[in-house]
């Protein structure tokens, strides 16, 4: 499964925004099957911080 992080914007900075992003993709994550690879595509993202990532 590939998730394009640019769909959340090109400025990914706050913990709150990261939490909202996780909530948005959680249904997709829950539908992953065993041994399925999760790919995070950072193309188009300019700024990315530890708070958003956490």
């Amino acid at each position: 499964m590939k998730i394009e992080l640019k769909k959340f914007g090109n400025l990914l900075t706050s913990r709150q925004d990261g939490r909202e992003a996780l909530a948005a993709i959680e249904p997709l994550l829950l539908n992953m099957v065993d041994n399925e690879t999760l790919e995070l595509d950072f193309d188009g993202v300019i700024t990315f911080t530890p708070s958003w990532a956490d």
Binding site: T13, T47, F48, T49
Partner: peptide, 17 residues
Amino acid sequence: YPLIVAIVGEIGNNSFD
């Protein structure tokens, strides 16, 4: 410049958090 924006973002968001 993204690193500058990132550290400004971290410090600023810390104030709110």
